[in-house]
């Protein structure tokens, strides 16, 4: 590992000066130096997707990106998407559809869906499945995650429509229907654990 030097990172809209070895993985800098614990350490080899962040809006595996190679690229972590007061449509969808079991993979799932919607806001089922192929979930929550992703497409569409015209009619919602069976309607309150995982914020006691 080469000697530490001053490295500038642009994370979630602000610039940070850090003394780091240029070879250090971005994930370490985010978690250890900037306290951004949304991205998780899974495999360390870019295989599982738990560490996913956005680099200039595209999904990237933070565990294999050396900080020295990022230059002025804009890095977005889960924390940068939104918070409880104003969640990103993808975060909102995962809360509504309870798309988590243990939640460890959820950062990667959300960031990867976010990247997909950045590229293709009207993603279909095949797009979602292809995009999430490289994100591993060990709890078997795949159906809920897929339902959350579909809901995210809807919410994203609503947000874009709302932005396009002040009074946008909300399109018909399919809610959180999983592929095989319709599920219960959206719960009124999300569980604390899910909210925490989805927003990467402090635990909500309630």
């Amino acid at each position: 590992m080469s000697a530490p030097k001053q490295i500038a990172l642009r994370v979630n809209g602000s610039e940070h000066q850090l003394l780091l070895s240029p070879d250090a993985p971005l994930l370490y800098a985010l978690r250890n130096d900037l306290g951004l614990n949304g991205p998780k350490y899974g495999c360390g080899l870019g295989e599982c997707g738990a560490c996913t962040v956005l680099v200039d809006g595209r999904a990237a595996r933070a565990c294999i990106l050396p900080v020295g190679g990022l230059g002025q690229r804009e890095i977005t972590t889960l924390e940068g998407l939104g918070d409880l007061a104003a969640p990103d449509p993808v975060q909102q969808a995962f809360i509504e559809c309870q798309g988590a079991q243990c939640g460890y993979c959820l950062n990667g799932m959300i960031m990867t869906v976010r990247a997909l919607l950045n590229r293709k806001p009207e993603a279909d089922e095949a797009d979602i499945r292809r995009e999430l192929r490289g994100n591993l979930c060990r709890c078997g929550t795949h159906l809920e995650i897929l339902a959350s992703a579909r809901r995210a497409v809807e919410l994203e569409g609503q947000r874009r429509a709302a932005r396009a015209s002040a009074a946008a009619p909300s399109p018909a919602s399919t809610g959180c229907a999983t592929a095989d069976a319709a599920r219960a309607p959206v719960p009124e309150t999300a569980t604390t654990a899910t909210v925490d995982t989805v927003l990467a914020g402090p635990l909500i006691r309630g």
Binding site: L45, G46, E47, C48, G49, V55, D56, R58, A59, A60, R61, L65, T112, A115, L116, R119, R130, E131, L132, R133, G134, N135
Partner: peptide, 17 residues
């Protein structure tokens, strides 16, 4: 499947790089 596919599989996700 474990080591390579996430980034190299045909018809896989769009990742940085």
């Amino acid at each position: 499947d474990g080591a390579c596919a996430a980034c190299h599989q045909e018809n896989g996700p769009d990742l940085f790089g």
